[in-house]
């Protein structure tokens, strides 16, 4: 059997300067505990019309190796029809899906982080552009809601 083994380089040339890097990663500091913030985040994601597919712990074994927190998760979410459309038409985005938010405790606050999909996935066709712009808008709105989430 001849084993074909080819490296495909998807030629998505992203012209980004090393210095224009503000807001490539968006972050929010939530003045609230980890469990409260986690609950609220899941609500807010759903309120924006997305389905939560899974929460992944990325901290298994962290406390054994000296960390004082094991409160580190990745929350995956998305919309099924968008997911199917992208798999069909833009399989090069598969490894970046579903969308995700990193959430971790820092003292009594909780930090959320996400990369800006609009910066990662350029250039794009009409429909993809539409989806990604919507993601960007929704993520901004989700983060805004989280910024406003404080205990009194």
């Amino acid at each position: 059997m001849i084993l074909v083994n080819r490296l495909f380089i998807i030629l998505i040339l992203v012209i980004t300067s090393a210095f224009a890097n503000a807001a490539h990663i968006n972050m929010v500091r939530v003045k609230n505990t980890f469990p409260e913030t986690m609950l609220r985040l899941q609500e807010v994601i759903k309120e924006h019309g997305y389905k939560l597919s899974r929460v992944q712990r990325v901290d298994i074994g962290l406390t054994q190796s000296g960390y004082q927190t094991d409160k580190y998760r990745v929350v995956f979410f998305g919309k099924h029809d968008e997911l199917r459309w992208i798999i069909r038409n833009h399989p090069e985005l598969i490894p970046y899906l579903p969308l995700k938010i990193a959430i971790y405790a820092e003292n009594r606050d909780t930090i959320l982080a996400i990369y800006n999909p609009n910066i990662l996935f350029e250039p794009k066709d009409g429909k993809l552009q539409e989806i990604i712009s919507r993601w960007e808008k929704d993520l901004e709105s989700i983060f805004k809601a989280m910024r406003e989430f404080e205990t009194d």
């Binding site: 084993l3 074909v4 083994n5 080819r6 490296l7 495909f8 380089i9 998807i10 030629l11 998505i12 992203v14 090069e92 985005l93 598969i94 490894p95 970046y96 990662l120 996935f121």
Partner: peptide
């Protein structure tokens, strides 16, 4: 490039 991809 955005991804690393191989075919099998």
């Amino acid at each position: 490039p955005l991804v690393i991809e191989y075919e099998s």
